[in-house]
Write a protein that binds this DNA or RNA. Structure first.
Lengths: 130, 130
DNA sequence: AGTCTTCTTCTACAAATGTAGATATACGAA
DNA sequence: TTCGTATATCTACATTTGTAGAAGAAGACT
């Protein structure tokens, strides 16, 4: 079930689709080109691979261009990828990553208030023997 | 400067080296085999690639076995990889990852106390206009 | 209707990755 | 000192990934 690995480039295109909700291949090509220069057929190949991996689906035709939308939600992608990443890079222990992010992320007061509330909850849920 | 990408398998072997501080190829093979079954020459290939990427170096000979040690620290590997991961999977915004980890990580009271202190510091460092 | 464009589809290809076999060789034991 | 075995080295190969060209076809413009 959608458990194929997604490559860096595939993720890049999927990000655009998440952002746009849906998009044609030419549109995706333009978006990618805003960042770096790649040929249309390159992007098209990535789109095909995403479709084969059932990460996106065709939903319409705009002129001769096909329109796609994501089949996988951000969470469906990011949760398993995060697990794998933590396993690979942090030997399964997410705490160093957590503390690094807490230290380095750009956070405004609202973010901080939210994080405080999550920590407060985690604290209240502690077993006595922790 | 050590800016090559490290593959999943290369990271796995490097994790063992970080843990052991140094190890011979046969030792690494044994460790990897504790988890899944791979041939000696497979591990040896990975070790060679790590050496070519200057992620590890030979430091000794034990009988006919060569002993290696990491040349890259955990931080030297995990910091750039984390940046790339956040870019790819979270479009550069680490906050969703942060809150997911804060929510899901296994934390004892000591961990929580530490995280509280980091948040307190971040809070105290807030600009007024944040 | 004819032509120009723009997309699609197919094919290709080098590099990286995971995986392993074959062959040579140096240690260590007998 | 010889021999068996554990290691090293080298070669190989399928798959995935990033990248793109060629050829055909469907819309759009005149």
């Amino acid at each position: 079930m959608s458990d194929e690995e997604l490559s860096a480039f595939e993720l890049e295109v999927l990000q655009h689709l998440w952002h746009l909700e849906q998009a044609s291949t030419p549109e995706l090509h333009r978006r990618v080109c805003n960042v770096r220069d790649v040929k249309y057929s390159t992007v098209r190949t990535i789109v095909d691979r995403l479709e084969r991996k059932q990460a996106i689906e065709r939903i319409a035709q705009q002129g001769r261009a096909q329109v796609f939308r994501p089949l996988l939600s951000k969470a469906e992608v990011s949760l398993p990828m995060t697990r794998k990443f933590v396993d690979r890079v942090f030997a399964g222990d997410s705490r160093p990553l957590l503390s690094h992010l807490l230290d380095s992320a750009t956070l405004d007061s609202r973010d901080i208030a939210y994080l405080e509330s999550v920590i407060a909850r985690r604290k209240s849920e502690l077993d006595d023997n922790d």
